[in-house]
Structures are given as structure tokens and as C-alpha cells.
Simulated scan of single mutants.
Amino acid sequence: MELGLEVAPPHPRETLARLGSEFGVPPAVRKRAIELLGELNAVKAGTGCNPAGIAAGCLYLTACEFECSLTQREIATAAEISVVTLRARMEDLIDLRE
């Protein structure tokens, strides 16, 4: 029996925590990725975007800053998004920083 209730997608922060844990990234990387996510939320950027894509973009950019060896393909696969989506969210984040 189906109740007909809608299930909300997970918040990007939840996905970010899962990805960080899955890849075993250092706490400093996780903390910075969460800060980046907060900056994105503060300006309402990313509204309407896949939450997993936003989380993956934050994690990948932060991992690059900290020179962690994660590939776009690894993160995209774990987040269940395409590499194209990951790159689009990264571009959004880079634009936000400028």
C-alpha cells in the first residue's frame, strides 16, 4: 500500500558528509567544503540544482585546494551524478568566488 507521500531529496550537507566519509577525506577538507556550501546557500546560488551535484562540486573543489587525490569521475560516480553535472556545479562555485 502506497501512502503517496513525497520524499524530499537529501540536503547537500548530508550528501557531502557521506561522500567525505566514503573517500576518507581529512577533517579540514570536510570543514572547508561545508563552509563553501554555506557560502553558496548564503547567496541562494544552486537553487533548483541537484543537491548531490552541489555537494560533489563543493567536495571536489575543496579536495583540489588541499591537493587530495580524488578524480572528478570518482566523486561523480559516488554522488550518482554525471561528470558533466559535477563540472557545471564547479563552474557555479568558481563564479561565486569571483
Rank of each mutant, 00 (worst) to 15 (best):
L37I: 15
G24E: 08
P26R: 11
Y60A: 01
L61E: 14
P51W: 06
G53T: 09
L16K: 04
G57P: 11
F23E: 05
R32E: 15
A55N: 05
N41S: 13
E39W: 14
A55M: 05
T15Q: 07
A52T: 00
V25T: 10
K44A: 07
L19I: 07
V25G: 03
L16R: 05
P51D: 08
G53S: 05
T47I: 10
G48D: 11
S69H: 10
I54Y: 02
A33W: 13
E65R: 15
E65T: 06
R30E: 14
L16C: 04
C58E: 12
L40C: 14
A55W: 05
G24H: 11
K31V: 09
E67A: 12
A52E: 13
C68N: 09
L59T: 06
L36T: 13
L36N: 07
I34W: 07
L40W: 07
G48R: 10
A55F: 03
G53R: 09
R30Y: 12
G48A: 10
A63T: 02
G57H: 03
L61C: 05
S69R: 14
L36E: 12
F23I: 07
A28V: 13
L61Q: 10
Y60V: 04
Y60M: 09
G38I: 01
P51N: 09
L19Q: 05
C64K: 14
K31H: 08
A45K: 15
E67S: 13
E35P: 01
G48H: 10
L40Y: 03
C49A: 14
T62F: 02
A33H: 04
Y60D: 00
G57S: 04
I54K: 15
N50K: 12
G38N: 13
I34Q: 08
G38V: 00
C49Q: 12
V43I: 14
P51A: 08
A28T: 09
G53L: 07
S69V: 05
A45M: 11
A52V: 01
E65F: 12
I54E: 09
A42H: 07
G46F: 12
A33T: 11
G24V: 13
L70Q: 02
N50T: 09
G48T: 12
L40K: 06
G48P: 09
R32K: 13
L40H: 01
P51Q: 06
R30M: 15
A17C: 02
L36A: 06
E65W: 13
Y60K: 11
A55Q: 04
L61A: 02
G53Q: 06
L16E: 02
P26Y: 01
L36D: 04
N41K: 12
E65S: 12
R18M: 11
S21E: 15
G57A: 11
P51G: 08
A17D: 12
V43M: 06
S21W: 14
K44G: 07
V29P: 09
A45N: 01
V25A: 02
A55Y: 06
A52L: 00
